[in-house]
Design a protein around this nucleic acid. Structure first.
Length: 709
DNA sequence: GCGCCTCGAGTTCC
DNA sequence: CTCGAGGCGC
């Protein structure tokens, strides 16, 4: 049999061994064909032959699910960055939006915007309202009017290069007339209901499994390695946002920008309107809700944005999402099913989290079989659920109501008491760790029960490693949740602590290249893994601090610490000092924004433990740590610590803080001997007195503006 | 001391 | 995405 011919033996009549052999052979042939097609640009197979191979390969996996491993080609195509799509760093990050479900949250949002801007409670603020399309967000970069790069959202900072696939979308112009030198248009790629049905019919004709919903089909189509497949899928696009624009943005409102996109030839959503109050926004929300079923494409809510771009700039961002926009989601679809069991998972901090194992049920187009139960009290029904007191206690065997929160995360909402089996017993939450058997205790006043096993608990160790390699921390491609347990257990090349990741290649050399001979590993995947690890060896200080996994020190707090200390050595020394009980250092940390006793205690406890310190030393010895992005140093207030107090009249407190930080100053909450300036509005009290006692410079808002001008 | 806001730590499915 | 809790303003 030649490599490119396809066996006619029905896949389900093959033995497991025969199937495995054929699967492997086809995988190699397909990989080779891909290489020729993409790299050498010289295909040796016709499209039809390639498709036949591919279909046989997938049919084998369908009949023999054991073949569908992380190494499988079909997994590599829809899954995480496979190395086949290039990475694209967004010039301006693509952020996510905050959510609202109840009308009240929308009113709150509008109130928050007004308050932040210092407007009267009933002052009109122009806001746009537009349907929230349920597809994939994409950023299209045009240089000199030609489509240059198209990227998926990714983690918001770095996405995947899907330019070739985007070029197959007819609705997206390849060339723009009268566009600025650089223009990034952002919007949603989606599939209409009609086209979705057509694609699924074709999938079935070809004996392939149908897509669960239009969004999955759109995602699968956009992330095809083969643009010829994408071209068969009539994807559509709506433009609603932008990234970099140079030399200048031509309009000064959100609605004006969308109109401009329309003039440039992009599809824009016809249901976009400008409103002036929360009531008008809600009225439009209801109008769109009524039209939902007849729109012909999926939407999952309505997005509201402050229209004036100057106001958007003043409002700025909160951590990951803009303060000037919110997504008002439609109520999630609910379903009932039976709770078969309650599993306990152990997190990296030792937290025991109960997970509901459900009789599989379709909710919102996806089959759900697991759902979080949050904690011990949630199962008992202690506490409140919004306005209403929860009275359920959740028992194994119960019929439960499930929804996908924000249409994503499955959640057990309630039980149906009438359907409770007579023999159902109240759930007894374990008091020992299911992984290591150590006692699991609940601290006074805490909701979570934690395993006390610490270093002895393998579940915790594994979760800590998982945290280290995760995307928001060291982001090591090819060493994800799937592979880590395999390395953790491995007798030859174990990864038991973070430093082990970076010594892996060395140890492998010493062991005569064992990795590539391991099951599921080839020479290529071993090399890819080593390359990814090498690429992560240089880390920004904030990510390193986040990687330590200190309680209460996540992404944001790590960044605060990194900026405050600048270098690993400075941070490390401060942490050691505070662990030794140094009061000055404690005070210095306390003066940092958002850092208080709980964070300092956690930091001190971590560095007081010799095993942690040794582990960290070993890790840092393997890394090149980049100094933290220096705050601006060329402004009059750079490096100074400022405290705002009293009622500010020229700017809101948040604006004042954002402004000072932009200029490289640190904003502290309380006055200390480290404070350089106190900016006092009318009605300032004890902080002003303290500033005078300490001889700190006190100024008015006007004097502050004069200083920073 | 209370209440608001933000962050961290947990979670699912593709 | 949600919940709980820390930080901080009032």
């Amino acid at each position: 049999m030649s490599r490119s011919s396809v066996s006619a033996v029905p896949v389900d009549s093959l033995s497991a061994e025969e199937a495995r052999a054929e699967h492997e052979r086809l995988g190699e042939a397909l990989a080779e064909a891909d290489r020729q097609y993409y790299q050498d640009d010289a295909p040796t197979l016709t499209d039809a032959d390639y498709d036949a191979l591919r279909r046989r390969y997938e049919a084998l996996e369908a009949a023999h699910p054991a073949l569908r491993t992380a190494e499988s080609l079909s997994e590599r195509v829809g899954a995480a960055p496979s190395g086949k799509f290039g990475k694209v760093t967004h010039a301006v990050p693509m952020l996510s939006l905050g959510n609202a479900f109840a009308d009240e949250e929308v009113t709150d949002f509008v109130g928050r915007v007004r308050r932040f801007l210092g407007l009267e409670a009933d002052a009109p603020v122009a806001m746009t309202a537009e349907p929230k399309i349920d597809g994939l967000s994409c950023s299209l970069r045009y240089v000199d009017g030609r489509l240059a790069v198209a990227a998926t959202r990714g983690d918001g900072a770095v996405g995947e290069d899907v330019t070739a696939n985007i070029r197959t979308i007819h609705e997206i112009p390849q060339v723009l007339k009268g566009a600025p030198e650089v223009l990034e248009v952002r919007g949603e790629v989606y599939l209409s209901h009609e086209d979705f049905r057509r694609i699924n019919a074709r999938q079935e004709e070809r004996g392939l499994p149908p897509f669960a919903n239009p969004r999955n089909a759109a995602a699968g189509s956009l992330r095809q390695l083969d643009p010829r497949i994408t071209a068969e899928r009539p994807l559509r696009f709506f433009a609603y946002a932008w990234g970099e624009i140079a030399p200048a943005r031509p309009r000064d409102t959100q609605s004006g920008m969308v109109k401009w996109f329309d003039e440039l030839g992009f599809p824009t959503n016809p249901l976009t309107v400008v409103c002036e109050s929360a009531e008008e926004l809600l009225a439009h929300y209801r109008r769109i809700g009524e039209m939902r079923a007849t729109l012909g494409y999926d939407i999952d809510g309505v997005v509201y944005k402050v229209d004036d771009l100057a106001l958007q700039a003043r409002l700025g961002f909160v951590s990951r999402s803009p303060r000037w926009a919110i997504a008002h989601k439609f109520a999630a679809e609910k379903a009932t099913t039976i709770l078969d069991a309650i599993d306990i998972q152990v997190g990296r901090t030792g937290a025991l989290t109960p997970v509901a194992k459900l009789r599989p049920v379709t909710v919102g187009g996806v089959v759900v079989s697991n759902a979080t139960l949050h904690n011990e009290d949630y199962i008992k029904g202690i506490g409140t659920d919004g306005a209403r007191f929860r009275e359920h206690d959740i028992r194994v065997g119960d019929t439960v109501i499930v929804q996908r929160a924000g249409d994503v995360i499955p959640q057990v909402l309630d039980v149906v008491p009438e359907k409770r089996p007579a023999d159902a017993r109240a759930y007894a939450f374990p008091t020992t760790c299911p992984a290591c058997g150590s006692p699991a205790i609940r601290e006074e006043g805490e909701a979570v029960r934690r395993c006390t096993g610490g270093f002895a608990c393998s579940a915790q160790a594994l979760e800590r490693l998982r945290h280290v390699v995760s995307r928001r921390v060291l982001d090591i491609e090819g060493l994800g949740a799937e592979r880590l347990p395999f390395f953790y257990e491995d007798p030859d090349l174990p990864i038991r602590e973070p430093a082990d990741i970076f010594t892996l290649a060395r140890r492998d050399q010493a062991n005569l290249k064992k990795l590539k001979d391991k099951e599921g590993f080839g020479a290529l995947s071993a090399k890819n893994l080593f390359d990814a690890i090498e690429a992560s060896r240089t880390v920004p200080l904030d990510r390193l601090i986040a990687a330590l996994g200190i309680r209460h020190v996540g992404e944001t707090t790590a960044r605060v610490l990194a900026r405050a200390y600048g270098t690993w050595q400075a941070f490390h020394d401060a942490a050691v000092r505070v662990a030794e009980g140094d009061a000055d250092t404690r005070h210095e940390l306390d003066s940092l924004d958002q850092i208080g006793d709980a964070v300092i205690d956690a930091l001190a406890a971590y560095f007081a433990e010799p095993r942690n310190r040794a582990m960290v030393e070993r890790l840092v010895a393997e890394l090149t740590v980049q100094e933290a992005e220096k705050p601006k140093s060329d402004t009059p207030v750079a490096g100074k610590t400022v405290v705002f107090t009293g009622s500010l009249e020229k700017m809101t407190r948040d604006e004042a803080k954002a402004m000072a930080e932009r200029l490289g100053a640190k904003v502290a909450g309380s006055v200390s001997k480290k404070t350089d300036y106190v900016v006092a509005g009318p009605g300032a009290g004890s902080k002003l007195d303290k500033a005078r006692d300490l001889g700190v410079i006190v100024m008015t808002e006007d004097e502050w503006f004069e200083l920073v001008k």
